[in-house]
Nucleic acid binder design. Structure first.
Lengths: 168, 168
DNA sequence: CGGGGAATATTGCCGTGCGTATAGTTGCTA
DNA sequence: TAGCAACTATACGCACGGCAATATTCCCCG
């Protein structure tokens, strides 16, 4: 494997990865400054965007790629903090709704401005549009050179479902 | 706090956040398919990009925003898997180098194509350039409306608590 | 030359957080 | 009414990482 070539890809991936990791950690730091974890923020936004500001536990789990038990616990924590509450489902007494409270909405209101600011900084600062498109061109070139027909059938180290891309 | 306005911001943040979260989880899934965790991938790229394919434990910790003990343990795992090795530092017998092995480089080679592909898909698919700039404009507008003087001062690089809100 | 303090890596201890498997409850249908 | 399905909550265990303590080595200053 050409060393030089590998270097090219590595620096490209490395730089971009740094940028992503940096953004993630800044997100986390900002959430933390407001007493939230990443998943808790996600739960909050999901609920806030849902009709009636509520969601069944199962649906919440499905929409956050968390297991149902994980959702139970997150909701436990956030209920303890007063950010969300549980509400019995009138139609089906097996289900229960997680519903965002006024405190939860306020918390979201506190976080959003800084969050948006961070996003904008990232895109306009760290990732100049021109830089970005140039980078993407380079990416494509490199990739085409490696995988003329993509296919990606690489057969890894006998480890697993290859490109098992999941996600909802 | 205007409900309508809040909704605007929420959908904006929510959509973007989904995009980021989706990318993250796809990254993780891909790494996992090759038997790596996220930090392990980061360590691998960091070492591969370093002169001599090696880095002192402390430096590795500094560059990965992991504590030194965390690095020790990650290196333990990866050494056990044969992806990297330890090498005594000739100049300073307190230090030791983590050095990437041939197997580690090969593993990286297996991962990179799919990784690059994913990145390109994300930028060109999920985040159309036109969409993106429009979105950023909207962002800016919204933000300005909320924080006329924003200031934003700061913290492009540290993790200052910013609006350190209490609440446990 | 010697001693104290700084730097470095490792390890024990512990908290966190999640997933799997299990249990308990309620709804639905024959 | 019985039995199966759907839903949530809990028990258990695991992986991960930070903090603080420890051992070793280096370096500076008297």
């Amino acid at each position: 494997m050409g060393e030089h070539f590998q270097d090219e890809r590595l620096t490209a991936v490395g730089l971009l990865y740094e940028a992503f990791a940096g953004l993630n950690s800044r997100f986390a730091a900002q959430f933390c400054a407001h007493g939230l974890s990443t998943v808790e923020f996600e739960v909050l936004t999901r609920l806030a965007r849902s009709p009636g500001h509520q969601l069944r536990m199962t649906d919440l789990a499905a929409q956050t790629s968390l297991s149902t038990s994980g959702v139970t616990r997150v909701v436990d924590r956030m209920e303890r903090d007063g950010l969300i509450g549980r509400r019995a489902c009138p139609a089906d007494r097996r289900s229960s709704y997680a519903v965002i409270t006024q405190a939860g909405l306020s918390r979201l209101d506190e976080i959003l401005p800084g969050h948006l600011e961070l996003i904008e900084q990232w895109f306009t600062g760290q990732l100049e549009p021109a830089q970005l498109s140039a980078f993407l061109d380079a990416l494509r070139t490199i990739r085409d050179a490696v995988h003329p027909c993509a296919t990606a059938g690489s057969t890894a180290s006998g480890h697993a479902p290859e490109h098992a891309v999941v996600e909802a």
